[in-house]
Amino acid sequence: MEYLSLFVKGIFVENMIFAYFLGMCSYLAVSKTVKTAVGLGFAVIFVLGITVPINYLLENFVLKEGALTWLSPEYATVDLSFLSYIMFIAVIASMVQLVEMIVEKFAPALYGALGIFLPLIAVNCSILGGALFMQERQYPSIGEATIFGLGSGVGWLLAIVAIAAIREKIRYSNIPAPLKGLGITFILTGLMGMAFMAFMGIEI
């Protein structure tokens, strides 16, 4: 039950885009058509679902104060958390590279669909954001961390597909010329964010 609540919270209440603005750059750049938006969205779910648990293990067995006690009890006072940024980003960049190679080898069809988006994801703030939120919130188990990662990914997919669908339709509307493109996308995202705020404070 706790897992379900975390999952739903990640999708709606703490939506990466509407509540924290993470991954906005690719959200704005790749939301011109629904098809590409779906591709990028699934790639984000995939990478978040892999990197958050790996970074969780890294955080709890290497970086946190006293995390190294499994090596020897004398390391109990070692605190490596200042290294976390560089470790997390290294994990993310190398995982993305690895995932890209594995997908290319074993699932060429999937690679065709996700291929061009995977390298983009290494610098998508929502991936590093997921790792940093995981670190800040101190999830008690790796299961919860994974569910949090997957939920945030699904929330991101939902947001980008929704905006892409609206942008496809709005192309035919009569918008003031200076607002066309980027401007109206910002305002639409703001309005959608207001709608998503209705989920705030919901406890499941």
């Binding site: 509407f18 509540a19 924290y20 603005f21 003031p176 010329a177 200076p178 607002l179 066309k180 493109g181 980027l182 401007g183 109206i184 996308t185 910002f186 305002i187 995202t189 703001g190 309005l191 964010g193 207001m194 705020m197």
Partner: peptide, 25 residues
């Protein structure tokens, strides 16, 4: 959060109506 997006949207609007070469298709 939502008003941050709308504020940036309006800044873009003002900037592009002053500098019309930036208007998108």
């Amino acid at each position: 959060p939502p008003m941050a997006l709308i504020t940036v949207g309006i800044i873009i609007w003002i900037q592009r109506s002053r500098n019309r070469s930036l208007i998108e298709e």
